[in-house]
């Protein structure tokens, strides 16, 4: 698995399309799709939004993530950085941000590479 991180709209998807030859229709969408039920996929986009939906359902996001990795060992995961702002007033918002961070750490540990995309440029950090 490869992990692609970065702020919003930094060109993560375009970078992955060009660099890893992923076609637009191969990206699974974190906004809507049940990542935890998919197998042998190549790319999971907006991973943080899948985390948000699962968190709101009260699911065990860390466990679901491990299962996802087992079912899709060679995938590319694209995830926004969401924790680099003022800590939100609402408890659930704070917990969500913290959870995305923890999930990212798990993914980074298991990834063969971690890249951070800034202005469309990849900074390889693992």
């Amino acid at each position: 698995m490869r992990l692609i991180l970065g702020g919003r709209a930094q060109g993560k998807r375009a970078y992955v399309q060009n660099t890893y030859k992923i076609r637009a229709e191969e990206f699974r969408a974190g906004e809507t799709e049940a990542f935890e039920e998919l197998r042998e996929q190549r790319a999971f986009d907006s991973f943080h939004l899948w985390v948000r939906r699962k968190y709101e359902e009260g699911a065990e996001v860390m466990e679901l993530t491990k299962r996802l990795l087992a079912a899709n060992p060679d995938c590319i995961i694209l995830c926004d950085e969401v924790g680099c702002g003022i800590v939100p007033l609402e408890h659930a918002e704070r917990e969500y941000r913290e959870l995305v961070g923890r999930v990212q750490i798990l993914l980074a540990e298991r990834a063969v590479s971690v890249e951070r995309i800034i202005c469309g440029i990849s900074q390889k950090i693992k």
Partner: peptide, 13 residues
């Protein structure tokens, strides 16, 4: 030695 550790929420800092 002084080390400054910087990062967002949940980053593992």
């Amino acid at each position: 030695m002084t080390v400054l550790v910087y990062g967002g929420s949940g980053s593992g800092k």
